[in-house]
């Protein structure tokens, strides 16, 4: 039912004959994907917007300004101001830093956990496999939103300063995110470990950590790049939900999710859409770009990889 996955080892042999590296080929294929390039472009734009945007904003250091409350968009404040007189566009940039950091951070953590546990489970099988996969099963049995809510409530008890709440959110999202990845990695490793190049490492008598890190890991990197990219989008969406409900990143630290929280006040919701629509659009554009990029990467890295 599945196509035999093309191994990197056999592929690179074929490609050396053409005198171009494996990653060179990937790059060439990727550059042909116009939609994915558009996604990448957009993503770069959003990164730059959030990272260096504030340096161009005259309102970045000013913050609260009681004389300029709830102004609609104008030539001075392109997206208006909020109830404390802060410039919404500038706040959107700062919020972007937080939301993107949470997304990337949660991805790095869940890829690390997922890859590590998946490789161990798939390579050693037996008892380690049983333990890791049973835990993953149990975590995947529980509905993720209630699970996140519980963790958020528990971790609120730790009295983390508000500006460091984003690390808590990252940790939470990665705890929910690793089981799916571990499963993917495990099934890949289960098939890889029967391959001849791994048997060769056995014959050479390599130590386990060299086998795992130098020979198995490089072969699951393509899988990790694709699922990692796509999981950033998911993490940003989850963060926005949590922050919207006041369980994620909390004010005064801005995130795109908690900016939309303004919609909970009836008057802001009906009369001041500039407070909550721009952050929503920012999330939308970021996630759609990430998904387009991830999809393009999947096709470029391994055209035979199963679409999920």
């Amino acid at each position: 039912m599945e196509n035999p996955p093309i191994t990197i080892a056999s592929k690179s042999k074929a490609e050396k004959r053409k005198k171009s590296s494996l990653w060179g080929q990937v790059l060439q294929r990727f550059l042909k994907k116009k939609i994915a390039l558009v996604g990448l472009g957009f993503l770069l734009f959003i990164f730059l917007f959030s990272l260096i945007g504030p340096f161009f904003s005259p309102y970045a250091t000013e913050g609260v300004n009681p004389t300029q409350i709830n102004l609609p968009p104008s030539s001075e404040h392109w997206l208006g101001t909020d109830k404390l007189g802060r410039d919404v566009l500038t706040r959107l940039m700062f919020a972007g830093r937080i939301s993107l950091t949470v997304g990337v951070g949660a991805m790095v953590l869940s890829v690390t956990f997922g890859a590590l546990l998946g490789i161990l489970a798939g390579y050693y099988k037996g008892i380690i496999d049983q333990i890791v996969m049973r835990i993953a099963d149990i975590l995947m049995t529980l509905p993720s939103l209630p699970l996140l809510f519980i963790m958020a409530a528990v971790m609120s008890e730790w009295k983390v300063p508000t500006e460091q709440r984003l690390y808590i959110v990252m940790l939470m999202l990665s705890l929910v995110g690793w089981p799916g990845l571990a499963r993917l990695v495990r099934s890949q490793v289960l098939s890889l470990r029967e391959r001849q190049f791994i048997q060769a490492t056995d014959a050479l008598g390599l130590r386990d950590h060299r086998k795992l890190l130098n020979h198995l890991l490089p072969n699951i990197v393509p899988l990790l790049i694709v699922s990692g990219t796509l999981s950033i989008g998911g993490a940003i969406l989850s963060e926005s939900v949590l922050s919207y409900f006041g369980l994620g990143v909390v004010p005064p630290t801005a995130s795109w999710g908690n900016m939309i929280n303004a919609a909970n006040s009836l008057i802001d919701f009906q009369k001041r859409p500039w407070l909550w629509i721009p952050p929503g659009i920012a999330i939308f554009l970021t996630v759609i770009s990430i998904n387009l990029l991830g999809d393009g990467l999947r096709d470029a890295i391994d055209p035979n990889m199963k679409r999920r």
């Binding site: 989008g233 969406l237 926005s240 939900v241 919207y244 999710g257 939309i260 919609a263 919701f269 009906q270 859409p273 909550w276 629509i277 929503g280 999330i283 939308f284 554009l285 996630v287 759609i288 998904n291 387009l292 999809d295």
Partner: peptide, 18 residues
């Protein structure tokens, strides 16, 4: 399809209500 998958559910709900 990509757009639908990239919209946070609560934001979509809010926009439709608005």
């Amino acid at each position: 399809v990509f757009a639908a998958m990239a919209t946070p559910s609560f934001f979509l709900g809010l926009i439709l209500i608005k």
